[in-house]
């Protein structure tokens, strides 16, 4: 039982990181109907921006929560910048192109970031410095709550609240939801579509950047191909929750994080990665709209 609780805590932490990435996938899909394959690599960029910021500007800093928050903010800005560049130069020229072309461009951008990252940062893994005091809180009965898990919960919770506010309470959020219903109609009623899409990319990318730093804190070994698997898994989480649905993405990500940890803990860690893909296949075959999505009926 204690072991189960420990797995649950670890799974929730992993799920929270997936959730931050999955939100970006789901928001971009909402406005553009595009699977932004490069999103996992934006997450990687966030991790590296954090790493280099620490290395260049605060090499001898005392580990503290404040430091972590500063690094996260910097990484968010860095990732958002990359997101904006990608949107402007790769996706915007293709706004009217067939979907498959945009999808292939996204794959190309993803490869570009990965191998460009290897060129700039080097291909070998680098250690993410300790920016958070390592403490383990004993909850009794051999259950431990790590300080970085607490930070992951805190940061992702705050960011999700901010996002919830942005999407459901602001003018921008309303415009974004309008676009996700119909881009053409939103354009007709005077919404500046390009601007809203750009802001969507900024928000999604900065969430991924924050997730990148949290990932570096929790698993302190990062390399330019780091975004591949977490990126795909976050996408799967978004599909599981119902792609295009903000709440669904969070639920899907938590479920995926939990089930991955259980499989790794009770069955075999080599099948951990297969589980995510199995979930993807099952969801798409049995309930393509996801847990919270609404079914679209094709009209002739």
């Amino acid at each position: 039982m204690n072991e189960f609780i420990q797995h649950t805590i670890n799974g929730l932490a992993l799920g929270s990181i997936y959730a931050l990435v999955a939100l970006g996938y789901t928001m971009v899909f909402g406005v553009l109907q595009l699977i932004n394959f490069a999103h996992g690599d934006i997450f990687m960029v966030g991790s590296f921006v954090g790493l280099y910021f620490i290395r260049w500007f605060m090499p001898n800093v005392e580990p503290s929560l404040l430091t972590t928050i500063i690094v996260i903010l910097v990484a968010m800005v860095g990732s958002a910048t990359v997101g904006v560049i990608i949107e402007k130069f790769a996706y915007r020229p293709l706004r009217k192109a067939p979907r498959i072309n945009i999808l292939i461009t996204a794959i190309g951008v993803s490869l570009l970031l990965e191998y460009g990252g290897q060129l700039i940062f080097g291909a070998s893994p680098q250690f993410f410095p300790d920016i958070l005091p390592r403490k383990q809180i004993d909850l009794g009965g051999a259950i431990y709550l790590d300080s970085n898990q607490v930070t992951i919960f805190l940061v992702s919770f705050v960011l999700m609240l901010v996002l919830q506010f942005l999407v459901f309470k602001t003018q921008f959020g309303r415009a974004m939801r309008a676009i996700s219903h119909s881009l053409e109609t939103a354009n007709l009623i005077g919404i500046n579509v390009n601007k809203v899409i750009l802001i969507t990319f900024i928000i999604g990318s900065s969430l991924a950047g924050a997730a990148g730093v949290l990932y570096g804190v929790a698993y302190p070994k990062i390399d330019p191909l780091l975004g591949l698997l977490p990126g795909l898994k976050a996408f799967i989480a978004a599909v599981l929750g119902g792609i295009g649905n903000v709440t669904g993405a969070v639920i899907g990500a938590i479920l995926l994080g939990l089930s991955e940890t259980y499989v790794a803990g009770y069955i075999s860690s080599t099948y951990r990665d297969a589980l995510a893909f199995l979930i993807l296949i099952l969801v798409l075959l049995l309930r393509p709209a996801g847990l919270l999505g609404t079914k679209k009926i094709e009209k002739v």
Binding site: N101, I104, I107, G108, V109, L112, G116, L119
Partner: peptide, 21 residues
């Protein structure tokens, strides 16, 4: 002295999609 191959490869893919879809 640096491995530019995969970068050029990815760039070709993106540029072809944008310039000659």
């Amino acid at each position: 002295g640096v491995d530019l191959r995969m970068v050029i490869y990815a760039l070709t893919m993106v540029l072809i999609m944008i310039l000659r879809p």
